[in-house]
C-alpha cells in the first residue's frame, strides 16, 4: 500500500510542476522535502498537494481521510516533511479508517 501512496504523492508533485518553477518538482523522489527552506513547495503548494492527495486517496482506496495534523508545520515532527513521511502518515490514516 505504501508504494502506491508514494506514487500518488509523486504524481501529484509532478502535476504541480506545471505551475511551479522549482526544478526538483518535475522529478521528485521519496526523499523530496515538502517543508522548510529546502522544500520544493511553498505553503500554498503544500496545501494544494494535501488537498489533491486526499482526493486521489479517496478515488484509489474508497476511503475519505483528512490529512490535518497539529504537527503539520513542525520541521522536526511534521508528517509532511518529506514524500516518504507523508506516505507513512497516509497509511496510518487509512488503517485507522478501516
Amino acid at each position: 500500500m505504501k508504494a502506491e501512496i508514494v506514487e500518488l504523492i509523486l504524481e501529484s508533485l509532478r502535476e504541480q510542476s506545471a505551475v511551479s518553477a522549482h526544478p526538483e518538482l518535475a522529478a521528485p523522489t521519496p526523499e523530496t522535502r515538502l517543508l522548510g527552506e529546502k522544500a520544493v513547495l511553498d505553503s500554498i503548494g503544500l496545501v494544494s498537494l494535501i488537498v489533491d492527495l486526499e482526493e486521489k486517496v479517496a478515488a484509489r482506496f474508497g476511503k475519505e481521510i483528512v490529512l490535518a495534523d497539529e504537527r503539520a508545520m513542525s520541521l522536526r515532527y511534521s508528517p509532511f516533511r518529506r514524500v516518504e513521511s507523508l506516505a507513512d502518515y497516509v497509511v496510518e490514516k487509512l488503517e485507522a479508517a478501516s
Binding site: V47, V51, E54, A68
Partner: peptide, 10 residues
C-alpha cells in the same frame, strides 16, 4: 469552511 475551501482552492 476547511472542507469547502479545499474544493474552492482547486
Amino acid at each position: 469552511l476547511r472542507e469547502a475551501a479545499k474544493a474552492m482552492s482547486r
